[in-house]
Design a protein around this nucleic acid. Structure first.
Lengths: 211, 211
DNA sequence: GTCTATACGAAGATAGAC
DNA sequence: GTCTATCTTCGTATAGAC
């Protein structure tokens, strides 16, 4: 968990980044090895299943990273979680000057040969985990069960779609618009409360909040 | 506009479909020619700029198709337009058994070499056109200007993201959830009216409605 | 103008030297 | 165990025969 100097770990993170930029098909093992300063042959020592093993781990890596951020921030309620989720992708898009995005989305829109289907399955799992986490948080905060489930799905879908739109348009404006609307949506689906109050279920947090 | 038996037109539509399934990088000119029964050499006669010319036209083709559907159905108001927009992609996903999606999104998440950037620009334009059309319709129906603009962006982003989620999960459920939430969102942003009534601006339509 | 045959590079994957 | 050199397949693009 401390920094892992291992070439293996660097390759997984590097693959996630590269896939998020160019997609899975355009991410070659050759170039990845070069960028991460790992010898080409070692790749197949670390990842005997080759490119698709590597891609699957890259998707899981992004999944876990996102789950970590969401879990931590959702402790302070759905709005805080939404905000953190948005910031996560916002920073990735801006720091890469609109060149990087979400590797999970990238894998989801490339039809893979039937026998190398594990990256897509990992992507499906990631979306499911993010959605469930958000839905639970909305329910805990008092949203009706249907709205919680549907709203969580909308949040994940909208963020993924918006990141792609921002990249196409080379502008962060779509993300700002979506942020405003999703924030409104959550407000309307929660029971009305004075801004300071919070339902009891939302108060249990596991750690001290960040920052 | 009647059926075009031309090989050229078939290649553009075929490219749009293939890109929507596997992404731009995995769409080879070779295989496209084979699928559309056009000789490989002819491709470069029709599209002197090669693969990226072809991709750009494919994106514009999908753009125009979507604009046509949207323009026609939005004449009956924003809810009808949303519904048609959703159906369009829903049918594509279901008819392809979760293998096809939106070519505009596919192009948006693949970083292209700087010199072959036109497909991305065409994608940016497509998103912009769809968003503007929806925003205008929402404004005409009485939504506040900010909500109209932001809501239109959310609709486009959410639909694009949801199509990708459905493909990853091999399930149409996300699209159903998003449909419910977006429908609610539009209702809440429009002035309250008895279901039968309609603001005057939404009544002007250009053609007789289909079917 | 249409198409076949081919040039040339880069992809995934592996064999086998260190 | 690590890495280099190489095999095979497929990519884009073109040259030149009909």
């Amino acid at each position: 968990m401390a920094e892992d100097p291992s070439g293996r770990q660097r390759m997984v993170a590097g693959a996630a980044d590269m896939i998020s930029r160019r997609g899975l098909n355009a991410t070659s093992v050759r170039e990845l090895a070069k960028h991460t300063k790992a010898p080409l042959g070692s790749t197949y020592h670390y990842f005997p299943g080759g490119k698709y093993d590597l891609a699957t781990e890259a998707v899981r890596w992004a999944d876990d990273l996102t789950m970590g951020v969401l879990t931590e921030e959702l402790a302070a309620g759905p709005q805080a979680g939404l905000s953190a989720f948005l910031s996560l992708w916002r920073n990735i898009v801006l720091n890469s000057d609109f060149h990087a995005g979400c590797p999970v989305l990238a894998v989801s829109v490339e039809d893979l040969p039937e026998e190398h289907d594990t990256p897509r399955k990992a992507a499906a799992e990631a979306f499911q985990r993010w959605t469930s986490l958000l839905a639970d948080s909305l329910r805990d905060a008092g949203a009706p069960a249907d709205d919680a489930e549907q709203g969580a799905t909308l949040i994940v879908a909208a963020v993924e779609g918006t990141v792609a739109m921002c990249r196409a348009q080379r502008s962060i404006t779509p993300l700002d618009h979506v942020t405003a609307q999703l924030t409104q949506m959550i407000e309307k689906m929660l029971p009305e409360l004075p801004p300071a109050a919070r339902p009891a279920t939302a108060r249990r947090r596991k750690k001290t909040p960040r920052r």
